[in-house]
Design a protein around this nucleic acid. Structure first.
Lengths: 184, 184
DNA sequence: CTTAAAGTAGAAAGATCGTTCTATATAACT
DNA sequence: AGTTATATAGAACGATCTTTCTACTTTAAG
């Protein structure tokens, strides 16, 4: 077996609990109980709580990208709309409490740890991805467009706890359409 | 003296620390130390940590509204742009780590406490405020417009930790202009 | 079948948390 | 001057946190 099933369970349970109650709001005991695992099993797979959080973030990031990769045709004539739809799908299926990466930056920022680096890295990659999209569409102001579109997606995520993922996504797609049409 | 200076110091210090490190990331000891106050002084003014958080949120909400009230002329022909500018001013002067109210909802949500109620109440009031703005502008789809504009502001707040308040506000105003022009 | 790896339960250490308590000091007001 | 409200420092409580430890059991591959 290339990878322990216990480790996978731990990651899954940890991500769910961390997302629902925050990193600092969940103790390892809770994770261990819900994963039906012994304390030392956790510490055999992860060197510390911080390390567990790091791997949870990496796992979530991978899954986020799989949503984008699956739905965004880069050569399409509306890749931004496709990205907004993919983002909405992710929210609908896995998010209802805002962005876990922003939360990691807020909770562990400016402390020189890997947690913040991973979270910021994800956002950076996202921005660059959208810059590519803008570039392929022949837009000259790639950075501005990428930033604006990211702002739209972050707004969508933030709105899910308030109005739900479906409506938030609806709005962001409507706005994205308007913006793509009327932006140089 | 209508209100203790110690209480004000506590609220100020608590808001700053809670905002920077999260509610669960800050202990009362830290707040007490930085406020140069005795333990019992805190407990004489606030019945618990939860209660302190509640009052911090109320204080912050008041200050947020004072930004809107000061800069938004409801009768103006572009109240939404003014609101976006006021929001940007608040971010620039008091925020660099996302929205404290969303964070409160995330951290204490679904636990039936006052913290969540206050935070959700603030967001609800904001939505209704923007609905009024849309109504005065003679828009028929008030709710949609208010939701979309709120999404824009939330996106702006979320982006501040990534690109700073100035740029984020710039983008949101640019987008707001485009949207106001091209939305029924 | 054996052996090494992986998992088990649970206690324990050491730190920190929110909260309460005690006992004292300061300041303002009648 | 005396009373009252507000502040003080710091010990103490019980709970919980992360991490480590011990000693036992299961699992899986050679």
């Amino acid at each position: 077996m290339s990878r322990s099933v216990k480790k996978d369970t731990l990651l899954k349970v940890a991500e769910s609990l961390f997302y629902e109650h925050g990193f600092r709001g969940v103790g390892l005991k809770q994770i261990i109980n819900e994963a039906n695992v012994a304390t030392m099993t956790l510490y055999n797979h992860f060197s510390s709580k911080e390390n567990l959080i790091e791997e949870v973030l990496k796992q979530r990031e991978e899954r986020y990208w799989s949503y984008l990769d699956a739905h965004v045709e880069m050569e399409s004539d509306s890749p931004f709309i496709l990205a907004a739809e993919a983002h909405g799908r992710f929210l609908k299926e896995e998010s209802y409490k805002g962005c876990m990466f922003l939360r990691a930056i807020e909770d562990y920022g400016e402390m020189d740890n890997n947690i913040e680096k991973i979270a910021r890295g994800h956002k950076q990659k996202l921005l660059e991805y959208f810059q590519q999209l803008a570039h392929r569409k022949g837009k000259n102001n790639e950075k501005d467009l990428a930033n604006q579109f990211t702002l739209l997606l972050e707004g969508t995520t933030s709105m899910t706890p308030l109005i739900g993922a479906e409506k938030a996504t609806e709005y962001s797609i409507a706005m994205a359409r308007t913006l793509v049409q009327h932006t140089s």
